[in-house]
Amino acid sequence: MTESSSTTVAAAAPPRARQLVSQLLQGDQPYMLYVAFVIMLVVFSAASPHFLSFDNFLNIGRQTALVSIMAVGMTFVIIARQIDLSVGSTLALSGMCAALAMAHVYDSWLVGAVAGIGTGALVGFINGVLTTRLAIPSFLVTLGTLSAARGLAMLITDTKPVIITSDPYIELFGETTFLGIPAPIAWTLLAIVIGILLLHFSIYGRQIYAAGGNPTAALYSGINTRRVTTLAFVFTGMLAGLAALVLSARSHAARPDVVQGIELDVIAAVILGGCSLFGGRGFILGTVLGSLIIGTLNNGLVLLGVSSSLQLVIKGAIIVAAVAFTKR
């Protein structure tokens, strides 16, 4: 750097660490999200004596694990200016494939894991290829796979659940603890760390931001936007597969009719977390926070004894209000 740069680049250049922290915590959004979360914690703590406890927070973590894991992938898809409505169905199909592979191919947790995550990757790949090669809007493509993958999951066993007997599998994905952290939360943390590394520290992260922020400019900069976008769908599918492993291990069975409608919670978490539906903006920790806000809301309303019907209404209103609030 030359002397003149000090005038144009000004007094910028904060220490590297601070810059890093600000990018991870803030994204492009102000701190309103954190404020909203804290307000919610305070309100529930004041209203319910059971809310503010370590066990309850672990509870929230376990309950939000599925949404959080898939929301990490959805962050990539939405940053790429796409949407994936099929994550819930992908989860169901992946769980069935994992359980069936263990029941009929070889009874090992590894076979189940490969089958589950592989199925998710395949559905994601199909979503990505149809979206980028045939130029069908991803909303329509994934609306199709939302229905098709669910139907396929039900077809395989004629809607019957598949029992999982592999104890190592149930231990690893559902019941063990790593350093005191319950498995579902540990797998969520792993997904978050991978998401952060990919999005904020890899070349691929830069490409996906550009492909969503301005696909034309990305193309004119030599970026293979099709490949980049397809990979986002594949990654999301794989995480839906991981979520399927966690869910099936906890319930000792894979069922084809699980988590219907979960895609809406996943998308709400990502948008709440500061992603722009117009692409090019978002950050992983925001998504995590968005997911925690939704989870905390569910948990807190249950503790307050609010009826489940009213819970839905309150949840919907708070999500819309929070998005309006954070977008200013």
């Binding site: 520290f201 691929y204 992260g205 830069r206 550009a210 922020g213 301005n214 400019a217 990305a218 970026i223």
Partner: peptide
Amino acid sequence: QGLVLDHAIERNLTLPRLPHFSRLGWL
């Protein structure tokens, strides 16, 4: 065609040269 308007100058400048700033895929 030229710029991702919502992104920082640095991100735009780096875009066509990403492979130059890649160490095994890490930025």
